[in-house]
Design a protein around this nucleic acid. Structure first.
Length: 475
RNA sequence: UCCUCAGUAGCUCAGUCGGUUAGAGCACCUGACUGUUAAUCAGGGGGUCCUAGGUUCAAGUCCUAGCUGGGGAGCCA
């Protein structure tokens, strides 16, 4: 073989280029090899144009085929959705619409794609239809953009925290405590569901279950996250979370991802500062690193997307306490479907009014009545409110929920007793207040809700690859 | 879970007052066209009208129940 030039050998050795690389500062005249999926093919008897996409960018590269040089049957098999490898010369494109094209010299078909049964077409599809073919929807421009942005945001989250000395802590997905207080949980068991053991009280006997006790999928990593923060200083979790609520809305999933930073020595103001800085960092990261995908979504999905992202980035969040929020709502002159008043939780219509009508920007509401918030939130001296904070975003509603945590052992224990929570399951949580307690704070960011905001998509089922919702666990 | 709207070709939809053989655009197939840009032009094939009952001489159309999906609400991130 030495010294011998063999076409097949050359082809084997040529390194595959990603389309993203070829489209920027293209080395015209160079022989290249690309591999990807056909988006469209058009042309006439003499020439064919293939738009090829390999996922590295939303943009396609144009493959120009001189039909006389290729077998008719091969060309027929290059239909929308087919996967091919193309070797050819990279050239400046004489046509309008693209600067670069590849003049094909050799084409190999990896996977044919029957045009009659392939569900994706060149034209637009409804989101509802694409959701039914979630295994193929990655191949559309919209979902390619959404999932590239989703990746970029996941990466940026880790970078943000790592750069600031936070440690990524893996809290358990299976939990033995059902007192996290965030809704219905999914049971985890190896018991035979057709023959569940019953104890003498008529209750399910979990002693022979896998863990020897009742277990569930976690609804939050917060309580365990606090344990880490009270030694490591600043930690964050980023993992899946499960809620067995029968929620059928465009903003809820039964399985979703959540980011939960937890910081020792942070008070509520530090917590708010972090939340605002964090969200703005993510927006800035997307604007800088996902430019083309965001532009596409702005053009095709939501005309106001880029403007809204820049607006949120450039403006300070409003910070008001719950009592001030209630005053604004009661003096607004509006008629509310749900009543407003101290002690009542803010409804969607109230939050929307504050964010979208009154302030017209993100709002952080703090110091809610203790009755409508979780047991672990730090109690204020007024005896009626807690150091909670909700970050409300336009179009999304609550994107972050957090608080300063109650670090006083007695106050925390009393609250647990008041709410009749199972203290025996929380002994380890209380221990951290008994042994070297510290003021600390944290919050939870719903990852998919953030992706909704970042992409302009309107249904949360379209920003997670395979959504789990009531009555739906396909794929 | 509640309220509401919808379900007709592969997709998006039209279908009159209940009336006899259910349509369009796109997609697909065939052909034409020397560089296309959601290519264009001509022709062709393609239907469990969501399911089950019911009313009627006659139901895609009206009634009842259910299923699925969208939107709104609640729960929440």
């Amino acid at each position: 073989m030495r010294g011998e030039i063999h076409i097949g050998f050359l082809y084997q050795m040529m390194k595959r280029s990603k389309i993203k690389e070829l489209l920027k500062s293209p080395p015209f005249g160079k022989e290249v090899l690309v591999k990807g999926w056909v988006r469209t093919k058009r042309g006439n008897r003499n020439i064919a144009f293939i738009a090829l996409n390999d996922g590295s960018t939303i943009n396609n590269i144009q493959i120009v085929v001189d039909t006389a040089s290729f077998d008719d049957n091969l060309l027929k098999e290059i239909s929308t959705g087919a996967c091919i490898a193309v070797e050819g010369m990279l050239a400046e494109s004489p046509g309008k619409g693209q600067n670069v094209e590849i003049q094909a010299r050799k084409i190999e078909i990896y996977g044919k794609c029957d045009a009659e049964t392939y569900p994706l077409q060149k034209k637009g599809h409804s989101m509802e239809f694409l959701r039914e073919i979630a295994h193929l929807r990655f191949r559309t421009n919209t979902f390619g953009a959404v999932f590239r942005i989703r990746h970029a945001m996941a990466f940026a989250i880790h970078k943000y925290f790592n750069d600031r000395g936070f440690y990524y802590l893996h809290t358990p997905i299976i939990t033995g405590s059902d007192c996290e207080g965030a809704g219905e949980m999914f049971h985890v068991t190896t018991l035979d569901l057709k023959n569940v053991p019953i104890d003498t009280d008529g209750e399910i006997d979990f002693s022979n279950d896998f863990f020897g006790k009742e277990t569930n999928l976690t609804v939050s990593g917060q309580l365990e996250g606090e344990l880490g923060a009270l030694s490591l200083g600043e930690i964050y979790t980023f993992g899946p979370t499960f809620r067995a609520e029968n929620s059928n809305t465009p903003r809820h999933l039964a399985e979703f991802w959540m980011i939960e930073p937890e910081m020792a020595f942070y008070d509520l103001n530090d917590n708010m500062d972090l939340a605002e800085d964090f969200l703005k960092y993510l927006i800035a990261y997307a604007l800088e690193n996902c430019t083309e995908d965001l532009q596409f979504l702005n053009d095709m999905i939501d005309r106001d997307l880029l403007g809204r992202l820049r607006f949120v980035l450039d403006n300070e969040f409003v910070r008001i306490n719950y009592t001030e929020a209630v005053n604004i709502l009661t003096t607004s002159g509006r008629k509310w479907e749900f009543p407003v008043g101290f002690g009542r939780d803010l409804q969607a219509e109230h939050e929307r009014y504050l964010v979208e009508t009154h302030f017209k920007r993100p709002v952080i509401i703090t110091d809610y009545p203790k009755e409508i918030k979780a047991f672990y939130m730090k109690q204020n001296d007024d005896g009626r409110t807690v150091r909670a904070m909700d970050v409300l975003f336009p179009g999304i509603g609550e994107i972050i929920g957090g608080s300063q945590r109650e670090e006083d052992y007695d106050k925390l224990k009393n609250r647990i007793t008041e709410l009749k929570l199972p203290e025996k399951d929380l002994w380890w949580y209380l221990d951290t207040r008994k042994f070297g307690t510290a003021p600390h704070s944290g919050f939870g960011l719903g990852f998919e809700r953030m992706i909704l905001f970042m992409t302009g998509m309107s249904n949360i089922r379209d920003v997670i690859p395979f959504p789990r919702t009531p009555k739906n666990a396909e794929f």
